[in-house]
Amino acid sequence: MWQEWLQFAIAIAIAVVGAVALALIVTGAMRLFVRKRQWPASLITRARRPFRAFVLVIGLWVAIAVTFPDPSWLPALNQAMTILTIVVGAWLVGAMVLFLSDLALGRYRIDVPDNRVARRIRTQTLILRRLAIAIIVVLAGGAILLTFPEVRAVGASVLASAGIASVIAGLAAQSVLANMFAGIQLVFSEALRVDDVVVVEGEWGRVGEITLSYVVLDLWDERRLVLPCTYFTTTPFENWTRDGSAILGAVELDVDWRVSPSKMRDQLTRILADTDLWDGRTAVLQVTDAVAGYVRVRVLVSAVDAPTLFDLRCSVRESMVTWMQRTMPAALPTQRVLLTEASGEIAEPEEPRPDTGGLFTGSAEAVERASAFTQAIPVVGGAGGGEGEETRSS
Rank of each mutant, 00 (worst) to 15 (best):
L300P: 03
A246T: 12
E252G: 01
A303W: 00
A273L: 05
T282K: 10
I247P: 03
D254I: 03
E341G: 04
Q286H: 00
L248C: 02
A347C: 03
G249I: 03
A306Y: 04
T334E: 07
P329G: 08
D256R: 01
I247V: 15
E351I: 05
W257L: 11
T334W: 05
A283V: 01
S343V: 14
D274T: 07
R313L: 14
V287D: 05
I271E: 08
A290Q: 11
R265F: 02
I247Q: 06
M328Y: 02
M264G: 12
R336C: 00
M328G: 02
P261Q: 07
D256V: 02
T269G: 06
E348H: 07
R317G: 09
E252A: 14
L339Q: 09
A347H: 00
A342H: 06
T308K: 09
D276K: 09
W257C: 05
V301H: 08
T269Y: 09
A347S: 12
A273C: 00
A347F: 07
V316D: 04
V321E: 07
T288K: 01
S319C: 02
E345F: 00
A347Q: 14
L277D: 07
S245V: 10
R317M: 05
T288Q: 09
G344S: 09
C314V: 12
L332D: 02
E318K: 10
L339S: 00
I271V: 15
W323R: 00
S260Q: 03
V301W: 05
V304Y: 06
D289G: 08
L277Y: 09
E341K: 08
D274L: 06
D311M: 09
S245R: 06
A347Y: 06
L277V: 07
V287T: 15
L285S: 10
Y294H: 07
V297N: 05
A292E: 14
D289R: 05
A342F: 11
D276V: 09
R270L: 08
D274C: 03
A246W: 05
A306C: 03
T334I: 09
Q325N: 15
A290H: 01
D289T: 10
D266V: 05
G280S: 08
V301N: 13
D311V: 10
M328H: 13
T327W: 06
S302T: 12
D289W: 14
E351K: 07
Q335E: 13
P352V: 08
V297A: 04
V295F: 05
T322H: 15
D305M: 04
V304R: 15
Q335I: 07
A246V: 06
V259L: 14
V316N: 02
E345N: 03
M264H: 02
Y294K: 10
P349L: 06
Q286K: 13
W257F: 15
D243T: 11
D279I: 01
S245E: 15
A342L: 10
Q267P: 02
M328A: 12
L332M: 09
D279P: 02
P333S: 03
L285E: 04
A250M: 01
D305V: 08
L309Q: 00
R313T: 10
K263A: 12
T269Q: 10
R242T: 06
G293E: 04
I271W: 11
A303D: 03
G280F: 03
R281L: 14
D254M: 07
R326V: 06
T322Y: 03
C314P: 01
D276S: 14
T269A: 12
S343L: 04
D254T: 06
D256I: 01
A330T: 12
L312C: 05
D289M: 06
